[in-house]
Design a binder for these strands. Structure first.
Lengths: 185, 185
DNA sequence: GGCCTTATGTTGACGATGGACACATTATCG
DNA sequence: CGATAATGTGTCCATCGTCAACATAAGGCC
């Protein structure tokens, strides 16, 4: 006889992550609820706990995937374009960016997340160290990251909104307004 | 007869804000609960609603006060010191900073908050416009803000932690590594 | 094929929270 | 002194995260 073919979903973990990704951008990281996710996956409200020990674990998995995608988005770029791509990523996935960088997750509890988060910066560091003209590549890399990271946050939160009609173009100009201390002084 | 002298607290709103300020730094903006606040103020769990329409309204008031205090902290500084003071403020009040800039509040719903938030940037803009050597002061001001803002976020979230023992000193170096495009080119 | 172990879902419960509503108490001001 | 508004209280509800006990399915071993 036809077994209760839906008792075991069979593909729940990826389904939850996909649904989470979708719901995240609609609801934001704070109002994203495990139960709503379970509902959307057509499964009982406790099923997700078989795959994620915690609500935070689910969010951490979503964030880790976000860092992976961010890494991909940056990988095809170089120079100032990388900075622009960073800001664009944030503008295109605002809630995901907030999840990744909004201070909600305790990275120390999620090693996989920490590793995923560290990767993009390592690439950035390598790129700056390859430029012999820059005086202190490590500091410059940190400054570059901070610049685009802050820009992303400020644009997302609307703090620069008054003067900005095209955020992407604005970001390009702001990034262009910055120099890094060179060896020559 | 001795009246139930505590029926009307008499000073509830400021008390709630003070308690909120204290609890915020302990619990973070997400786990701060209205009920816990009411408990600490020795009042029923519904009393706060007479003074704040919403949980978000209470948070907005706390954030607005944060912006005011940030403005004060920056007012006594100038030049690169302002940037350093910005980062220091974030490091000293991490949860408050996250509340102010973590994307949890919908500024459009809280005009007083929006106004308070805009003030520090106006001061920064004015300072940059007063420097005739800088090519595009508005872009430079945005870049300066983005730089210290991103730096604050990254330091708070531990993304730069591997290389940083003294965050404040590190911030000073990073800020020092940046130049702004000048009129001369 | 039949059985046992383990992975996966389900049901039901608990405590906490934000919030709505009706009601009680106190201040204020005519 | 008495009406009216401001401020607190009590009760109630929906939602949520999480725990514990139970049900079902899948896969390996005989």
């Amino acid at each position: 006889m036809c077994p209760m073919s839906t008792y075991h979903h069979g593909d729940l973990r990826p389904t939850l992550l996909r649904a989470g990704q979708a719901l995240l951008e609609k609801a934001g990281p704070d109002t994203l609820s495990l139960r709503e996710l379970a509902r959307r996956a057509g499964v009982s409200h406790n099923a997700p706990y078989r795959h994620f020990s915690d609500r935070e674990a689910l969010l951490a998995a979503l964030a880790a995937d976000g860092f992976r995608r961010l890494g991909e988005a940056l990988a095809t770029t170089s120079g100032r374009e990388t900075g622009l791509a960073y800001v664009r990523f944030a503008l295109e996935h605002p809630q995901l960016f907030r999840l990744m960088f909004g201070g909600r997750l305790r990275f120390s509890r999620h090693p996989a997340l920490s590793e995923a988060a560290a990767q993009p910066y390592q690439a950035l560091l390598a790129a700056f160290r390859a430029q012999p003209a820059i005086a202190d590549p490590d500091k410059a890399a940190a400054a570059a990251w901070a610049l685009v990271h802050g820009l992303a946050h400020l644009l997302l939160d609307g703090h620069l909104a008054r003067q900005v009609s095209d955020p992407s173009a604005f970001a390009a100009e702001v990034i262009g307004a910055v120099r890094f201390a060179s060896r020559a002084g």
